[in-house]
Amino acid sequence: MYPGLYHLAVTSPVGAEATALLPRVETMIAVFYFGLFAASFDFISGYTGYLSFGHATFYGAGAYLVVLAANGKLPLPYDTPFMLLIVLAGLLAVVLALVIGAVSFRLSGVYFAMITLGFSQVIYVFVRDWDFVSSSPRDGAAVVGPGGGEIPVFNVGVPGVDALNLAIGQLTGDTVEGLFGLLSLSAVGYDTFRYKLAAFAISGFFAGVAGALFAGFRRSVAPDNSLFFLVSGDALLASIIGGFGTLAGPIYGRLFDETVREFLSKEGAGGGLLPYLRGRLSEGTLATELFNGLTVREAIATFLNGHASLYLGLLFVAFVLFVPRGLLGTLRDRVGDTLAAAVSKRLR
């Protein structure tokens, strides 16, 4: 649905503004697969309060599985259907989550965050320097097909990712609330370890799936964009802005995040503020000196161009301080129910 709407908006009379403001279709796909990852991160971190700072491991494992399988480096036919690879990526992440979780859930609080971070950095460093992955493992691996063979094609589109998001959306409600209700039972002496571990495995599964989608869409993977601990940080950012402890929140958070990033992106990366301003402002305005020889053009280039992280970081800090429940969480507080339920009630 989005590609059509986007095309309509861009060709409309406010086309220039729409190009500047709306994320491109490719970005929208990225929002969905990363949103899925962020949701899986929030599933464990937001609901249970066990901050899984090594969550990028599961995302990266899924991504590497797809690329390695497509390059014929795994004991699988290199043209294994993508849907099967997605499931395998999820299962690999489940195995990792069970191993890491079995050790890590003996700890809590800061220590849990640190041990998961420790595990993920061990794996990150290992993969970064493992020459089995590709000839220059630090730069990652691309889908090139097995030695001279045909290069597999993956069909990743908005519909596919969207369906998966719906699937994880189904997990909300009673199932999840019930599962985490059990966690509070540890206070009265029940053994909640198994439930925590199960939640961690579910969360890992979807992170692995998200990683597989990421690799399938990008057709390459690098240690720094999949396994590095700052990737978990990006998921954290999306979760906080969207709503910590809500499943759909992180997806909206990521949408917001990507939109701001693209709006302030470097030149040549689609729409955004910069080409818009360059096109609209007159040469006189652009060359005006602000102070000390700094022209408006240079000021834009210096303070806006590609520096979305600064503004997102400020926003993130503001959210932690003033809107701890995030966008979706605050909205839900306002209407007193999940949005879908509130809307359907109002319509009835």
């Binding site: 309060g49 901050l51 609080g109 800061v110 965050a113 940080g233 954290l236 950012l237 906080i240 520096h307 992280s309 600064l310 997102l312 970081g313 400020l314 993130f316 800090v317 932690v320 301080l321 701890p324």
Partner: peptide, 18 residues
């Protein structure tokens, strides 16, 4: 809860680095 201090200082990192 202590988790919020981790979150906040993480945000500060993003700002300072950028």
């Amino acid at each position: 809860p202590p988790i919020y201090q981790i979150l906040l200082t993480f945000g500060v990192t993003l700002v300072l680095d950028e």
